[in-house]
Write a protein that binds this DNA or RNA. Structure first.
Lengths: 195, 195
DNA sequence: GTCTATATGCTGATAGAC
DNA sequence: GTCTATCAGCATATAGAC
């Protein structure tokens, strides 16, 4: 603990990422200094540049990892079956995946404007791919006559906003369990698409 | 235009607020300096302190005005009538009011963490009052047997997140008019509450 | 009411010792 | 791999001239 120097590259890198995520989520990218991140990790500011080329990369890497992990995790569970079953799987996946990593979700939504133009474009492309996953479910249900949706693109945006909103108010140990929240949102989602 | 000094207190104050709103929305509170705001207004940085005690007050005043105006505007249109009619009025009001002032809405949602603890508490109280307006409509419809809602508190949060989300993707002159968006969201809202 | 000048301190990033 | 020292610049806020 009192150790001030030493060779610990195998763990310091991830700790830099973790500290940046934690601080960016709590105080915002622009409000957090490199010195503050270094302090959280327990190194001097200069040492951070062994693990990231600059502050912008630190933010981009966090957001890129988050979006990639989101898409990959969905691919693992992306249900086959009827559109209704697939929509139910999406509802469950989105709520649980987002509740499991509130800091990454918060940063991914709040810090978009602090990305460089090139990095912003890359992250938006990943977000578009995730939205397309939901829209394909809605289109399939609409074509099969199982859903009644006036506009699948708007329904996609509406449902994602509604589901992501859970992160803003859900508190562990609160009035409702995650499973109960999932069930209640499923009821509203199902009705909203006319199923 | 080339005028560098002079007495224009009656317009400089509002211009400071407008510049702060514009810049905070575009770049974020923490990323915007007082010098930058002064530059936008066309005065020196020191002159800003004639119109605000400090940077924090600039942010708080913007958010407080926004929330107060939101509550007051709703009070003007808050429909009497059946719960279904009142919900339809809320749907319309929320979408249009928010689309009319995207910068204020954006700042009010994104900069909460940059408020001092006392100011945060005050803003959250105003937000709670607005949410209570919607929840009272949902409760009335539920009690009258006209809605079918598993949990009115969650439905309140879900619907507000969904409606506010319009601001993140709606672009003037895009594929859909505001009226069409309102109609499509009303279809989804109505179905979601089981009406 | 606005200006200039200034105080005090923090910023991202780099160079070079160890 | 981490440290210390440093650069050049910008931050908020205030004092006092005009």
């Amino acid at each position: 603990m009192a150790r001030k120097t030493g060779s610990r590259s195998e763990i310091t890198g991830p700790r830099v990422q973790a500290a940046a995520l934690h601080l960016f989520a709590a105080e915002g990218y622009a409000a957090v200094s490199m010195r503050r991140i270094a302090q959280e990790v327990g190194v001097q500011a200069g040492a951070l540049y062994l693990y990231t080329s600059d502050k912008q990369s630190l933010l981009y890497d966090l957001m890129q990892s988050h979006m990639t992990e989101l898409l990959e995790a969905w691919r693992q569970v992306a249900a086959v079956g009827s559109p209704l079953e697939r929509l139910r799987a999406f509802n469950r996946f989105h709520i649980f995946h987002h509740l499991d990593r509130p800091e990454a979700v918060f940063v991914a939504y709040m810090e978009l404007r602090n990305l460089s133009p090139e990095n912003f474009t890359r992250i938006e492309a990943l977000r578009g791919r995730y939205e397309a996953e939901l829209e394909s479910i809605l289109k399939a249900g609409q074509q099969a006559g199982q859903f009644d949706i006036p506009d699948t693109k708007l329904a996609t945006m509406a449902l994602i906003a509604m589901l992501t909103g859970v992160n803003t108010w859900f508190r562990q140990g609160g009035r409702l369990s995650r499973e109960r929240v999932e069930a209640i949102y499923w009821d509203m989602v199902r009705k909203a698409v006319g199923a």
